[in-house]
Simulated scan of single mutants.
Amino acid sequence: MSSSADTSGTASADTSGTAGAADTAVPETAEHDPDGWEAFAERPAPGAMDPPSPDREVARAVQQLRKVLDASRRQTDDQLSAVREVVADLARQAWRLDALLLEAAGPLREAGKGNLHKRLDVVRKEIRDRLADLDIEAEDPTGRPFDAVADVVDVLRWRHEPGFTTEEVAETYEPIVRDGSVVVRYGQVVVGAPPATGDDEDGAAPDGDRSAEHDTTPDEAHQVRAEDRPEA
């Protein structure tokens, strides 16, 4: 009886001791998996996204189209301005052709070349007509009162002679060229006036500052001062 009890007590003690050790053992730490679900932090769900507004998309497209059109318009304006500059110079050259044909009319007829003069005159008229279609005009101010053209000519020099009773354009070296109502080339002229009095001499501008160009030579007449040109 005693032996059986001892055996039972020993077994019971061993069993309880083993169970206690199992309860107090520290569990092994699992290895961290960087690709596991624990790597993802919780984030709030995004709110509802509004779909693109058709009106907004149309407005953006219209704005882009306007930019393209504006750039194209500026380029076209620049090209047109360059073309009209060339045409204005052509009008000046056509005016020179008029003067040359008028001067050559007599000698050509005397040389039996009257038909040549007529053909050249037809070409001259065609050029003038084409320029008129573009509203480009070369005006010869010879004989006009100086006050009427003072703002659109450069005076090369003054000519004081008894034959002049008032100040008027006595000679034109370069015409006044107009593009519509805008002057794009100043005329280059000689102004006639009554004989000077006192200390004034032929070639000097009355009132001192009426002509800053009286010393300009005819060869320089086609070079209009850029700062005096009106805006095109």
Rank of each mutant, 00 (worst) to 15 (best):
D89I: 07
Q75E: 09
M49R: 14
T29V: 15
T216H: 09
P194N: 00
P27F: 07
G17L: 11
A170N: 01
D133G: 02
D35M: 04
E31Y: 15
D135F: 00
T10K: 12
K113C: 08
Q75N: 07
L69S: 14
T76R: 14
L131H: 02
A111E: 01
V62N: 02
M1T: 10
R74C: 01
A21Y: 13
K113T: 01
L131K: 00
E201P: 00
T172M: 01
Q93D: 11
D147K: 11
P145E: 11
H117P: 03
K113L: 10
D121M: 15
D89A: 10
V26G: 15
V177L: 05
A204S: 15
T165V: 08
D133W: 06
V152P: 13
D33R: 02
G180V: 00
S3T: 15
T142Q: 06
R60P: 07
R96Q: 12
E126D: 08
T142R: 06
G17M: 12
W158D: 05
A21R: 14
E85W: 10
V58C: 10
D98F: 05
E137G: 09
H117E: 02
G163E: 05
A105C: 10
P52C: 04
D135L: 01
R92P: 03
S81Q: 10
V26H: 12
L101R: 07
V177W: 10
I176R: 03
R124L: 13
A19H: 09
R92S: 11
L131G: 00
P175D: 05
A105W: 14
R124V: 03
E227M: 03
Q75W: 09
E167I: 05
K113Y: 08
E31F: 15
T165F: 07
A59G: 07
D207Q: 11
K118P: 04
E31D: 14
D6Q: 14
D140G: 02
A21F: 14
D89M: 11
A196E: 03
L156F: 06
G192D: 06
A226W: 11
D207F: 12
R96F: 13
V182R: 05
S12P: 02
G17E: 12
P51H: 14
E28C: 14
E220S: 04
A205K: 10
D135A: 04
R92K: 07
T165E: 08
P194G: 00
V149G: 01
L156T: 01
Q93N: 09
R210G: 01
A226V: 06
V153C: 00
G187Q: 02
L102Q: 13
G47F: 06
Q188M: 11
Q79M: 10
V123K: 10
G180M: 00
T76P: 04
K113V: 03
S53D: 15
H222A: 14
R73Y: 06
A5E: 14
D151L: 00
T197I: 05
A30I: 12
D33F: 01
